[in-house]
Amino acid sequence: MKFPLTTLVCALALTGCADHAARERLGIEDPSVLKTGLGATQNEAAGAANPQWINTYASIKGTRAMLASLQARLDQVSGEKTDYFHAKAQCWIDAARQARDAHDDWGFVEEAIGQAAMITMSLERGTPISAVNPTLRTVSTVRPDLWNIVNAIKADSAVVHCPQAQPPLACAEVELMQAGHDAWTRGFSNAEKRLPEVRENLRKSAETALQCKQAGQMSVSALAAASPQKITLRADSLFRFDGSDTAAILPGGKLRLNAVAIDLKKVPATRELKITGYTDRLGGDAYNRRLSLLRARTIEQYLRTRGVTLPIIVQGQGSANQRVDCRQTKRDELVRCLAPNRRVEIDLADAAS
């Protein structure tokens, strides 16, 4: 059943629980977790480590150093730092740190590091990432009603077009997984303590998505009624480093372009687009002009495949029209400073007569 965002916002504001034991309130369905007292076991069926788990996670040693390295890599990944997958990787890192500091030796630290590493590597390579939450050995499902709300929010198209709604949703999913780990270790009261933050993040995500839907945030159709306007897309958020073809478009870039395409299809046919690619000043002029043109052409092709039929003019201006002037001597710092210059601009104007 699909729930409207208004219904979800109202539901998440209600926190009343039946007066039962914490374990019952969590809605746990896993019989191995429900079994307590004499005869309760931690065999493989109940989640004990098996050879597959050991082969996957045994290589994770020195978790403190590994988390520091993973954080540094995530910080260096190009693209928006607040999109769904960046936020989810960060929340998995935070979850691993929290479990490690609590001296949790059940295997959740390794699993959380594994999830963060998988997402970070995909962001680095620009490869597709699944938004489906994994089945982990040390996590049982708790509060199926909240998971239903998670899935309902994720299924709403407003969330795709509303970047601000994505981080709280991603973190709510990780927090629910943490609560599931608490339950798996029979820490039912600890699991319950996480739920207010889960509900708050879900409420924030649903409410923000609803506001985006109502306001028509960044709606190109609204801009079309005014004078010619411009949409600026950061190249670092769209493409892998030095990438320019469709395969180099980052997952977050596809989400942004999908939203742009949906709005552009509402623009009157008498309008036209001019897509212009720009680079920073690093590199040769010929290379920069070619890279900027290829990126602009790729975006044109991507929008066409999403049903945009407006007339489009494509050009690459290389390092022309720099937005910022940077003088850092360290290359990494210079590259970060020059990021606003690496961009693609979409100008919306009346068609030429």
Rank of each mutant, 00 (worst) to 15 (best):
V9R: 04
C10G: 08
A22N: 06
A40T: 11
A45L: 09
Q52P: 00
W53P: 00
W53D: 01
W53G: 01
I60K: 10
K61A: 13
T63Q: 04
A65C: 01
Q71M: 08
Q76E: 11
E80T: 09
K81S: 14
Q90Y: 14
Q90R: 15
H103L: 14
H103F: 10
W106D: 12
S122R: 12
T135L: 13
T138C: 08
N148I: 09
H161S: 13
P163E: 13
Q164S: 10
L169M: 11
C171V: 06
A172R: 03
L176G: 05
Q178D: 11
D182W: 07
T185V: 15
A191H: 03
S205G: 03
A209P: 00
S219E: 06
L223W: 09
A224P: 00
P228W: 04
Q229I: 02
R234W: 12
A235T: 05
D242H: 04
D242Q: 06
D245T: 07
L255K: 00
L264W: 01
K265L: 07
D285K: 15
R290W: 05
V314T: 07
G316V: 04
G316K: 00
A320G: 10
D325M: 07
E333Q: 11
P340H: 00
R342W: 02
I346H: 01
D350M: 08
